[in-house]
């Protein structure tokens, strides 16, 4: 199998790192090679975050080049637009419709593009938006948005869904197991 490239984008604090960890651990549990990389440090301070997960028989670089992502998962519409050029021709984009104002917008220095979803569709024809917050809340925790987003792409991954569920269960604490599995499945149903 060639290398399968996943890019996860979002805002610091949204759980992009946890989503990446779930995918990377699932690849390892499936006996594949994997590299995962995000640049953090200043990420927690509400900045834009981008994370790469690369899986396959043999993976060298931890970095996904623009133009080579099989899947782009974005936790926020503006971030989907910011990283849409990472998609390869025919690549798939799933994004969470809930917006988060960047500080530049919050302080009145810039405006949030009102037509962000149209712009996304223009840049990527098959882009699919979901209301991840509502699904996460239904599952029992607004913070489970990240699991919803992982769930939304599960069918497209070269990994067995059951393996992912196993990893999510292992990484969650007590009551979190049920909530996260519900969120994961809710995301799958919305895709």
């Amino acid at each position: 199998m060639n290398v399968f490239n996943i890019v996860i984008a979002g805002v610091g604090g949204q759980g992009v790192l946890m989503a990446s960890k779930v995918l990377a651990e699932s690849a390892l549990a499936s006996g594949m090679d994997v590299k995962q990389n995000e640049v953090h440090g200043m990420a927690q301070r509400g900045g834009s975050v981008i994370s790469f997960v690369r899986i396959g028989d043999k993976v060298y670089s931890p970095v996904v080049m623009p133009g080579s992502a099989d899947i782009l998962i974005s936790f926020e519409p503006l971030e989907a637009l910011r990283y849409v050029h990472y998609l390869k021709p025919g690549g798939m984009l799933v994004y969470n419709k809930g917006t988060i104002n960047p500080s530049t917008v919050a302080s009145g220095l810039a405006t949030y593009p009102a037509d962000v979803e149209e712009q996304i569709s223009r840049a990527c024809g098959g882009a699919h938006g979901i209301d991840a917050l509502a699904i996460a809340q239904q599952a029992g925790n607004a913070k489970a948005v990240n699991m919803v987003m992982v769930g939304s792409v599960l069918k497209k991954l070269p990994i067995d869904a059951q393996v992912v569920e196993g990893v999510v269960s292992a990484l969650s604490k007590d009551k979190g197991v049920e909530v996260n599995l519900k969120a994961l499945r809710g995301g799958g149903a919305a895709a």
């Binding site: 133009g67 910011r82 050029h85 990472y86 530049t104 917008v105 405006t111 593009p113």
Partner: peptide, 14 residues
Amino acid sequence: AATAPVENLPQRPP
């Protein structure tokens, strides 16, 4: 790339 980077987006600095 399938598409060029979208320009003039509001920055999201820390």
